[in-house]
Simulated scan of single mutants.
Amino acid sequence: MTSQYQSGRGAQANPVNRFAPLHSESCDDGWFQELPERCVTEVREEQSRHIISRNNSPDLPFDRSLNPYRGCEHGCIYCYARPSHAYWDLSPGLDFETRLIARTNAVDLLEQELSRPGYSCAPINLGANTDPYQPIERNYRLTRRCLEVLLRYRHPLTLVTKGALVLRDLDLLVALAERRLVRVMISLTTLDDDLKRRLEPRAASPAARLRVIRALRERGVPVGVLCSPMIPQINDHELEHLLDAAVAAGADSAGYMLLRLPREVASLFQDWLEQHYPGKTEHVLSLLRQSRGGQLYDASFGKRFRGEGPFAELLAQRFQLACRRLGLQRAQGSSELDCSQFAPPGRQMGLF
């Protein structure tokens, strides 16, 4: 743990990534006290080789995704994407939210991959790993430029975010929606501002996310809510209230996930519990183990998003009953999007 609380950051430690052959530990030798440096956000620019990632997971409603950024400044302590930072020799802890990577050739790569003769159109998800509308998007505008490409190619997409910056691109989202090419899911974890500041320190406030849902719905953009993650004894009691608020704002579909703690996320989250909710730590972890076959995480398909056992089953029943009461559709991903319009500019010229 760091010697001083890092305000505005989710993680308070920088554990060594699992691929590092060596690591060092600081200790107090009694000679002097070194003041901790302020955690500032650094951005590294990367020239990627590919931009569309593929998956064959039966748990996901899409088989391809696009992430313009690696790491995420929102700093959500629970983020399942944190371990991916180890692939770039960075820590899943503070590094994940302070040492970011902008994939500056993302737009060019997207055009290249969509223009390949063998490309088969299916909805692309933006935000599967890190948020496409985190703060650095204000300057880099990679997400907006990718949306421009997708609109020009008439390519369908789904988008997941907890960033209010998405409203900057309302013009593009409306144009995509008019052609049945987009669905947006807004992640809404809590209605408690104090919990939000601890859990997701640099993400938009709950009120701002509800305003996003309302604005999208008013302009005809299909929008749903993703209540994720549900954390035992921390925010699970809010599930029905979250769905009520989302429906009142205009959401027409909903989904949820039980907290996932893969790899280094488990120790980071336990540190967070001990920092903010020391009296609940053992109870929270016990309920998670009961829902994960005795472990803190089970990556098995069919179990990793929902869990199993009494607590997980009760959560699923509560969600189903609330959706039925509110007339909410279960989140179906991209089933209503139209892939038939896909038309790469200039492809027909290849016939002559």
Rank of each mutant, 00 (worst) to 15 (best):
residue 44 R to W: 08
residue 44 R to D: 11
residue 44 R to S: 13
residue 45 E to M: 12
residue 46 E to I: 14
residue 46 E to A: 14
residue 46 E to C: 12
residue 46 E to Q: 15
residue 48 S to L: 14
residue 49 R to Y: 09
residue 49 R to E: 15
residue 49 R to W: 10
residue 50 H to K: 11
residue 51 I to L: 12
residue 51 I to S: 08
residue 51 I to D: 07
residue 51 I to R: 03
residue 52 I to V: 15
residue 52 I to A: 08
residue 53 S to H: 12
residue 53 S to A: 15
residue 53 S to F: 10
residue 54 R to D: 07
residue 55 N to A: 07
residue 55 N to I: 11
residue 55 N to C: 13
residue 55 N to G: 12
residue 56 N to T: 14
residue 56 N to Q: 14
residue 56 N to W: 09
residue 57 S to D: 12
residue 58 P to L: 12
residue 58 P to I: 13
residue 59 D to S: 10
residue 60 L to C: 09
residue 60 L to Y: 14
residue 62 F to D: 07
residue 63 D to Y: 08
residue 63 D to F: 08
residue 64 R to Y: 06
residue 65 S to D: 13
residue 67 N to A: 15
residue 67 N to Y: 06
residue 68 P to I: 14
residue 70 R to T: 09
residue 70 R to L: 13
residue 71 G to S: 05
residue 71 G to R: 02
residue 71 G to Y: 01
residue 74 H to M: 09
residue 74 H to D: 02
residue 74 H to A: 06
residue 78 Y to M: 07
residue 78 Y to R: 05
residue 78 Y to C: 03
residue 81 A to W: 01
residue 81 A to V: 01
residue 82 R to I: 01
residue 83 P to A: 02
residue 83 P to I: 00
residue 83 P to H: 01
residue 84 S to P: 00
residue 84 S to C: 02
residue 85 H to F: 04
residue 85 H to E: 04
residue 86 A to D: 04
residue 86 A to H: 02
residue 87 Y to E: 11
residue 87 Y to M: 07
residue 88 W to V: 09
residue 88 W to L: 11
residue 88 W to S: 11
residue 89 D to T: 05
residue 89 D to P: 01
residue 90 L to C: 05
residue 91 S to H: 01
residue 92 P to D: 06
residue 93 G to S: 05
residue 93 G to W: 05
residue 93 G to K: 03
residue 94 L to F: 02
residue 96 F to V: 02
residue 97 E to S: 08
residue 98 T to Y: 03
residue 100 L to E: 03
